[in-house]
Nucleic acid binder design. Structure first.
Length: 570
RNA sequence: GCCCUCGUAGCUCAGUGGAUAGAGCGUCUGCCUCCGGAGCAGAAAGUCACAGGUUCGAAUCCUGUCGAGGGCACCA
């Protein structure tokens, strides 16, 4: 639609130039935007204001000249000059009716655009430490990353989802020690629980499981051997659990990338990925030694201070592995590399950007910072304490509100805004709950389509998409669709490809939920004002069923990008 | 102290340098002989934190002040 409007303006401008009405050698780029106030029309352009000086005309005069050549076009119902020289364009009912046919032939491909042109993009997200349950923030980032991936794919990108597994380091060691301590307690031994150990009940459960599987034979083993064994067992179990929880919300990863692998020798026995990354930085002159440690001169790329990569004791910092990890991502040939991090990691942004630049990939890395989630229950803050272990995990939340409500609520706010998640509202089955509001519109549409078949509306075997296909032939009297409610609904449907474009470009999935609510509202308004199935008017019924079915497709498609189901009945 | 993010209606939040700043909730007033009322219509509600600057034009960009959250390890 935007392209249609731009083309209309461009053609009018070219015609005016050729007719000698406008003194321009070549037409300028035509920028089309949405007027903030819809009463100004569907589209507006400031092209007359931008090129007035070059044309030697005043902006309004130029605008009038262009507008005159646009009026009368079958896709334009009104064109007017406003303010300092805006050209406001209202598309005709004819142009909107044509969209219905496009939507219905596209099906779930509706809104697919070619922004990515098949280029490759990787989205890395969640990447929670596999040492315990995920918190609700992880849930938000999971929904965010997955929807981002879905909308990027819809916008023509070749997308890969990746989870970076921190399977090495201090956290893992503490984790192993914690499990070992619980195990020994279960064996009736006197043990001192590690100072910094994880005290969650799940640690004891893992220990109990090991005890059940392998008996007490580890009680008298060497502590180091015991911890090594427990670390592997416990970590594999937690990782499988994370995968399971994410999957139950419809989030699946293409790659689970192990941090540990970065430290292991290459397949040919050569240096590890970490050492190879060091070599690259060293050759480029970005490393130096100081106080027995190896430093990265990140200040050369805008960081606040230089960073240690290899400590004086010979061990590597987390950052060292992260540099190697990103070097590996770049080597894999992605055109874009997107990381979604929690707000608690945002202090890390500058040094990672510095590392990307030092590796010769400035601008290829996009760091998205997801703000945290505050849980409420009917307006009351849900208090959580890590110390006492009193907390609502992501899994708890999923169990309580279900995957649809969870995903929908996680995506209702812009990424850089902290999210207040009201558990009571998410469970409510009323119009106050936006996910029900949107899903209800879809179920209502399906009820109409069932009704239109004349079949038993209680028959659950009706295939809605197939029904709509057979019910509605290619030629329909769409010109009958000209009431305000019908036009408004068609406008909203036609807006969808634009929403995909913006959501993908700005990496902003909350545009999707917002659009879904607007579309649902347009549909409910249409429903209230226009009776669809009317035995006395077969023509109008057919035409309206076309809008209804196009609404169904648009709603189901946007919900698909959000990752929420589109129920045929509720 | 330094860095990052944020500050928009009573509340929760949209807003891509454009025109008279929008939506939901809440408050108030209405709409069911009719395809699903889990719906719809209407009303009231604003110093876009504040002060400068850039621009033909700023909620949006820049600087400063105030306020909120987060980050400032040879932790991850």
């Amino acid at each position: 639609m935007r392209e249609l409007a731009a083309t209309l303006v461009r053609e009018a401008l070219v015609a005016a130039i050729e007719a000698g009405e406008v003194g321009l050698s070549s037409p300028p780029e035509v920028r089309i935007e949405r007027p903030r106030d819809t009463s100004h029309g569907d589209w507006a352009t400031n092209v007359a204001m931008v090129s007035a000086k070059a044309a030697g005309m005043n902006p309004r005069q130029l605008a009038e000249t262009i507008a005159a050549r646009m009026s009368g076009h079958e896709d334009v119902s009104a064109v007017e000059v406003a303010g300092p020289g805006f050209i406001n364009i209202r598309l005709s009912a004819h142009a909107l009716q044509r969209v219905l046919t496009e939507v219905r032939s596209a099906g779930t491909d509706f809104g697919r655009i070619d922004q990515g042109e098949g280029r490759r993009v990787q989205v890395e997200f969640v990447s929670a430490n596999p040492v315990g349950p995920m918190h609700v923030g992880h849930g938000r980032w999971a929904a965010l990353g997955d929807s981002m991936a879905r909308v990027l794919a819809h916008a023509g990108w070749d997308v890969q989802r990746e989870f970076y597994v921190n399977d090495q380091g201090v956290q893992m060691d503490i984790f192993a020690k914690s499990v070992a301590a619980r195990y020994l307690e279960l064996c009736g031994r006197e043990v001192e629980f590690p100072e910094e150990g994880y005290r969650g009940a799940y640690i004891t459960e893992i220990a109990r499981e090991i005890l059940g599987d392998e008996g007490e034979r580890w009680a008298d083993a060497e502590p180091a051997a015991r911890e090594d064994h427990f670390r592997e067992k416990a970590y594999a179990q937690v990782l499988a659990h994370l995968e399971h929880v994410l999957h139950s919300m419809g989030v699946d990863f293409d790659v689970w990338f192990s941090e540990r692998s970065l430290h292991q020798p290459a397949e040919d026995g050569g240096p590890s990925a970490v050492e190879r990354a060091f070599d690259r930085l060293r050759e480029a002159g970005h490393l130096y030694e100081h106080d027995g440690a190896l430093w990265f001169r990140s200040t050369a790329f805008g960081d606040d201070k230089d960073r240690v990569l290899k400590k004086a004791d010979g061990s590597y910092t987390y950052f060292a592995a992260d540099i190697a990890y990103h070097a590996d991502k770049f080597d894999r040939g992605f055109d874009r590399v997107i990381d979604i991090w929690g707000a608690d990691h945002h202090g890390y942004v500058k040094r990672m950007e510095a590392a990307a630049a030092a590796l010769g990939h400035e601008g290829k890395l996009e760091l998205v910072i997801g703000q945290l989630v505050n849980l409420f229950r009917g307006g009351e803050v849900v208090r959580m304490s890590k110390r006492t272990g009193e907390m609502v995990t992501f899994e708890d939340l999923l169990d309580e509100v279900g995957p649809d409500a969870a995903r929908y609520f996680f995506l209702r706010r812009s990424t850089d805004q902290p999210l207040d998640f009201d558990i009571a509202l998410a469970k409510e089955q009323s119009s106050d709950n936006p996910v029900y509001y949107v899903q209800y519109a879809h179920a209502r549409i399906c009820a109409i389509l069932r009704k239109a078949t004349g079949a038993d509306t209680a028959d659950t075997s009706v295939d809605i998409a197939a029904t709509a296909g057979t019910l509605l032939g290619k030629d329909a009297p769409l010109h009958l669709l000209d009431s305000d409610a019908e036009l408004a609904l068609m406008r909203k449907i036609a807006e969808f490809p634009e929403v995909v474009e913006i959501a993908a470009r700005l990496l902003a999935p909350h545009k999707l939920t917002r659009y879904a609510e607007e579309l649902a509202a347009s549909f409910h308004q249409f429903y209230t004002q226009c009776r669809v199935v009317d035995p006395d008017d077969a023509e109008l019924t057919t035409a309206r069923l076309h809008v209804v079915d196009a609404s169904r497709i648009a709603l189901a498609t946007v919900l698909g990008l959000v990752g929420v189901s589109a129920p045929e009945r509720m």
